[in-house]
Amino acid sequence: MKKKWSLTRKQTIFVWCAMIPCLIAILLFSIFPIIQTFYGSLFNWNALTGQMTFIGIDNFKNAFSDQLVGKSLFNTIYLTFFAVLLKTILAFAVALMVNATKRAQGFYRAIYFLPTICTMIATAFVFRFLLQPEAGTINGYLQMLGISGPGWLEDPVWAMPTVILYTIWKDFGYVFLIFLAGIQGISPEVVEASVIDGATGFQRVRYIIVPLMHPITIYNVVTQVIGSLQIFTSIIGLTNNAATSTAGGPMYATTTTGLYIYQMAFTNYKFGYASAIAVILFAIIMIFTCVQMKFADRKGEF
């Protein structure tokens, strides 16, 4: 048992033959680009000419005084907070409800998961049409009930809540599925024991299921937060204005940081500035992830 690296020569050759092409791929397409984004954020980097002039941390200084960066970060965090909170609570509750049914579990699972696999841009268009303020179907039904519907995506106040509504509809199934698999993985003896001890349904959820589901909840929250902070496609689908061919409106109400980075880089051709904002968002994503991981560790101990 002493020799830890017990590979024969043939095996060593195999391992490296397998590894090297994959390693080259991630070096080229993941690691090198990350380094270049950090490096490029220190330059005035023109996308059209490819010219790079070193300007130190000026891009970051500009970013911190750019009102739209602030606005986009606010929008992104607003969206992430409410979307993740609502998705998690709703999906957990529905997972408990589905778990409590004896029949039709497969049916519910199949239906609730359906939006997750649907093409995102297509479903975003569908939502957009459904929520069209003047003649859209939803406002049409609301009108029949005597309610005058809001402007949804065309109203600066309602636009972001509407985006949140869409992302809940779209991602709910994934979060739900992970919760359901987790709840069904809880050993039945634990739950039975609590029933014998006279725990009510609520107590069972509060003191048995919720603590046991802690790691899975953290997993769900982390993946959803990371996804939400980078949101892009849904925003384009929901808000891109055909006339001006810009997304993120009205009045920048749905301009998220991911979208702003994209626009800075590929509409305004400011690669360096866009890289600097990307570095800032990347730092925020990392901080969120680390904090949540820490949280998972602390709670997981007892």
């Binding site: 993941s30 680009p33 984004t37 950090f38 996308a47 892009f232 940081t257 991911g258 980075i261 968002l281």
Partner: peptide, 17 residues
């Protein structure tokens, strides 16, 4: 770790490359 890399930090250099 490559699984967790956000697109925002790779897309510009990748496009450039």
């Amino acid at each position: 770790a490559t699984m967790m890399v956000p697109w925002i930090v790779t897309i510009i250099p990748l496009y450039n490359m």
